[in-house]
């Protein structure tokens, strides 16, 4: 009994829990910076560690040592809560995603709904965080985040739920199980994959949907006023969110973790995650930023009808 609890604790805290995910997030940041650099014909991080692999960790430590300023105009309590929530919410969400085996750390009927909820809560946090700091750029950035949410939320929820129809369950674990018994959902719902990729770009506020933190317009959007430990947590939270989004896509559409030849499931899963990550980064690199009204118009004109179509098609194909 005691050893079981210890193993579970180890799973939550170390592998595949918090520590592993935080390290993965650092690695993902390095990969994103390196790939973006190479796409743009630059070097990317170079000096810290082999090919600059320790650079994100060095940045994190540097930020921890910086002065932590709370503006006088800021809402003190929320200004403190926002970074913590922004960092811990996606980290919590990871326990619902199957990584080392078909089963996630915790799973129950309807955990997909919880994931959807967490994604929305994060954006709501960004909005409130923007308002709490009292900076004009943050307020505009937060408003933009919330406005953008109105655009991508509906197609995102539709495409998150589409894989649930054939599997007949709202549990991520069941969906992964179903995919391994039948086929990857991307083969039957390629349109859904495209839509969820686009929506995740918007959720992660990557170009072309980075209007909420368009640096040439509103500096850093809702995180303009944060510094020191808070900024370090926010940046880490952002990276975790990035990994979370790619893991979710690879679990929902690319079959999740599976044993292949002698490679353990976690390896296969990580390969899938980084393929999705690479896709997102290269998409980011070849687009310019859309304006917020253009994002909304585009989402409502194209993405929502497409998502609804995908949903109806799946519903018809897999029976009422």
């Amino acid at each position: 009994m005691v050893s079981e609890t210890l193993i579970f604790l180890g799973q939550v805290l170390i592998f595949p829990g918090f520590l592993f995910i935080i390290l993965l997030a650092f690695f993902a940041e390095w990969a994103v910076r390196k790939i973006t650099g190479r796409i743009q014909n630059r070097l990317g991080p170079t000096y810290t560690g082999y090919m600059g692999i320790l650079q994100p960790i060095a940045d994190f430590i540097k930020l921890l040592r910086k002065e932590d300023i709370t503006p006088t105009m800021a809402d003190k309590i929320f200004f403190l809560i926002f970074p913590i929530m922004y960092f811990s919410l996606p980290l919590t969400a990871f326990s619902l995603i199957p990584m080392t085996e078909v089963q996630a750390l915790t799973y129950f009927e309807g955990d997909l709904i919880l994931l959807t909820f967490i994604f929305t809560i994060i954006t709501a946090m960004v909005f409130l965080g923007g308002f709490s700091s009292g900076n004009i750029f943050s307020i505009v950035g937060g408003t933009r985040s919330a406005t953008q949410l109105l655009g991508y939320e509906i197609p995102l929820v539709f495409t998150l739920l589409c894989p649930a129809i054939p599997a007949g369950s709202f549990s991520l674990t069941t969906i992964v199980e179903w995919q391994q018994n039948n086929s990857w959902i991307i083969w039957t719902q390629p349109l859904g994959f495209g839509i969820i990729l686009t929506c995740m770009l918007a959720e992660l506020e990557l170009t072309p949907f980075d209007a909420p933190e368009a640096e040439t317009e509103i500096v850093a959007g809702s995180i303009t006023e944060f510094s020191g430990v808070k900024l370090a947590l926010i940046r880490l939270g952002k990276n975790i969110k990035l990994v979370l989004a790619s893991s979710l896509i690879s679990a929902l559409y690319l079959g999740g973790p599976e044993q292949l030849w002698i490679l353990p499931p976690i390896m296969i899963f990580l390969i899938k995650v980084f393929v999705v990550l690479f896709l997102m980064v290269s998409l980011r690199a070849i687009f310019a930023r859309f304006r917020i009204d253009q994002i909304l118009a585009g989402m409502w004109k194209y993405l929502i009808p497409l998502a609804v179509t995908q949903f109806l098609l799946t519903k018809i194909l897999w029976g009422w």
């Binding site: 743009q40 630059r42 980075d210 930023r289």
Partner: peptide, 10 residues
């Protein structure tokens, strides 16, 4: 300014 950093670098 329009957020197209790759083009900017090129």
């Amino acid at each position: 300014e329009v957020g197209f950093d790759t083009f900017f670098m090129y």
